[in-house]
Nucleic acid binder design. Structure first.
Length: 575
RNA sequence: GCCAGUUUAGCUCAGCUGGUAGAGCAUCUGAUUUGUAAUCAGAGGGUCGUUGGUUCAAGUCCGACAACUGGCACCA
């Protein structure tokens, strides 16, 4: 009989727990769910699992599976459960919680491993694949996901219905690793890091910075079209601003700050919001000014935990395509809808059609009244529902000042990254006491929406590189064309081609090195150059270029003037 | 920040059980003047992440610190 893969994975988790119990009888069990591509199980023991244990555990699992052990369920009462799990503190904690919640206490026994578990499971281990799983790694994980708790050892396993599916997955993961933006960033000469001098901060090379600027150009054009204005606020401001905003209390430790000669405490901005608020506040605003959509490509610095840094995806200095929309409460919902549409439209432009959306709601530690939270959460949900967008509610994950929508993209190996976001904020307007004069001549408090579409230019570019395997579209490519003369006899013509292209606004260069065409084609291809224009005797005589496009062996010779016209068009922003 | 692993030339990596470092590519020099994924030859280049310790002797063993990688936690 065949079972859903989740059931197989979850049952394999029990098998692994049984195997680990056999090898390390003193181990304490926490829990082990099925996850995407496999399962894990959390253990607590003084023994430190390492790669050398993987094979032993796998072998033991195979033995157990071969034994055709049954998965037997029983419903027990609290007393019996307490006896069964007397030496299992983590299970004791669960069963007390389940009992308090009035749940039935279900236990499953597989061989000599009994687990507190709702199930369901396969009937017998003969329903499980003997070679469809492979231990991936061991990692630390806090009990109940809380960093105040003890750290357990989590063993991750890739698991599929059979060996073929597992091998296919492993191969796909291997291929995905080749698209890692850190690897491609090096190969394409986009950026590098200096861990000694600036851990978690990007050094943009010429080519990387061209892409970066191009992304901003594109976003700027989209925003201007959507009725935004753009501002620029100081990088260093008095700490009082963050105290006023309420962020110092919560995030002070993650800020870069320092005292100046005159004993003032300054702070390198970790976010752009207060700057925008100060511009809003610099003049008296009328209801006629709203909605005021104020964008800023603001570079922010946050001292992120060392363990959270990852390539250009999570860094300590990054640029947000930030904007603050000041509006009336009545305008809030339609502004959310417009922003939502803008985000998804732009993502589509980059080939991201499957965007996961989270609605993160009020956290425990928050400010603002429940009525305000009700209103804000409802506005976001309404915006989503109005257009039939599917979303997942993330309870308690909102910012302390308001709920947020998060737009999630995946990297090459499937990890989720929050990119775009729309957040409602009824806190800052109050704290900074901003207002507008209404139709009635009275002062009113505007609502503030924070939104970022790329989120961080760095992260978005990282995702983009991985998703496109470095093959950026012509308009984004830092070097859409490289001209390669066959020999030094044709240098002059190559240089004139470059000059003509540049005159037409197409960035390009000639590769004049004393190397064979083969060599240059190989090297330029590895650097993901979209178009190689080869010129030799024929081309210089006919005023043509022979084009080789990335990944395509077939070449075509076209008139230089036609090529320039084509390129001029191809590198335009896709608006 | 926490758990585990890793750190050797610009890059990718080798260096077994301790006896003062190697390869390929890149760079430089020379030859070659090249027609679509690596032309040939020679040369230079490393206080082996930093810092303590063990030892007659440390890239190799032990400790601390840092960075990076994979997770966890965090993510205004």
């Amino acid at each position: 009989m065949s079972y859903p893969i989740e059931l197989i994975r979850h049952s394999l988790a029990h098998v692994m727990a049984a195997a680990v119990k056999k090898l390390h009888p003193d181990v304490k069990f926490a829990g082990g769910p099925a996850i995407e591509n496999g399962f894990y199980y959390d253990f607590d023991t003084d023994y430190r699992f390492s790669e050398e244990d993987f094979e032993k555990i796998e072998r033991e699992m195979r033995e157990l599976i071969k034994s055709n052990g049954r998965f037997e369920q029983r419903i027990v009462d609290l007393d019996e459960a307490k006896q069964i799990f007397a030496d299992q503190p983590y299970k004791m904690e669960w069963l007390n919680e389940y009992d308090a919640a009035g749940e039935k206490l279900s236990i499953y026994t597989f061989r000599d491993f009994t687990d507190l578990c709702r199930g369901p499971h396969v009937e017998s281990s003969k329903d499980l694949p003997r070679d469809g799983f492979k231990i991936r790694n061991v990692a630390g994980a806090y009990w109940k996901g809380d960093s105040k708790n003890k750290m357990l050892q989590r063993i991750y396993v890739d698991a599929f219905e059979n060996k073929e599916a597992l091998d296919a997955f492993l191969k796909q993961q291997e291929e995905a690793a080749l698209r890692d933006h850190r690897k491609l960033g090096k190969e394409m000469d986009l950026f590098h890091f200096e861990p000694e001098y600036a851990p978690g901060a990007v050094f943009w090379h010429d080519k990387g910075y061209k892409v970066y600027r191009r992304l901003i150009d594109y976003m700027r054009a989209r925003q201007e079209r959507a009725g935004y204005i753009e501002v620029c606020t100081p990088a260093v401001m008095d700490r009082v601003l963050w105290e006023t905003s309420g962020h110092w209390e919560k995030y002070g430790a993650h800020n870069y700050s320092g005292k100046t000669e005159d004993d003032r405490m300054f702070c390198i901005k970790p976010m752009n919001c207060p700057g925008g608020v100060l511009i809003y506040r610099s003049v008296l605003r009328s209801y006629r000014d709203l909605p005021l959509r104020m964008a800023e490509f603001g570079k922010v610095n946050r001292y992120e935990a060392s363990g959270s840094l990852m390539g250009i995806m999570r860094v300590r200095e990054f640029t947000q395509d930030d904007a603050h929309i000041f509006c009336t409460p009545e305008q809030m919902e339609s502004e959310c809808i417009d922003t939502l549409k803008l985000i998804l439209d732009i993502y589509k432009q980059f080939g991201f059609n499957e965007v996961k959306i989270y609605l993160s709601t009020r956290p425990e530690k928050r400010i603002g009244s429940d009525e305000i939270w009700d209103l804000c959460e409802k506005s976001l949900a309404n915006a989503l529902n109005a257009h039939g967008y599917e979303f997942t509610i993330n309870p308690g994950e909102g910012a302390f000042y308001g709920p947020k929508l998060e737009f999630i993209l995946r990297d090459a190996i499937g990890r989720e990254w929050q990119c775009g976001t729309i957040q409602v904020d009824m806190n800052l307007p109050e704290r900074f006491d901003i207002s507008y004069i209404g139709e009635d001549g009275e002062k009113h408090r505007p609502v503030m929406l924070h939104r970022a579409l790329f989120g961080s230019i760095e992260r978005f570019m990282g995702i983009l590189i991985e998703n496109q395997s470095g093959n950026l579209p012509l308009w984004l490519s830092p070097e859409p064309v490289v001209v390669v003369p066959i020999s030094e006899k044709y240098r002059e013509y190559a240089e004139s081609v470059v000059a003509d292209l540049r005159a037409a606004g197409v960035y390009c260069r000639a590769d004049l090195r004393d190397e064979k065409v083969n060599y240059k084609v190989r090297e330029l291809s590895l650097a993901k150059t979209p178009i190689i224009a080869v010129v030799g005797e024929k081309e210089s005589a006919d005023k043509t270029v022979t084009l080789r496009k990335l990944g395509i062996e077939k070449q075509e010779t076209v008139a230089l003037s036609d090529f320039i016209a084509q390129m001029k068009d191809a590198i335009k922003l896709p608006l």
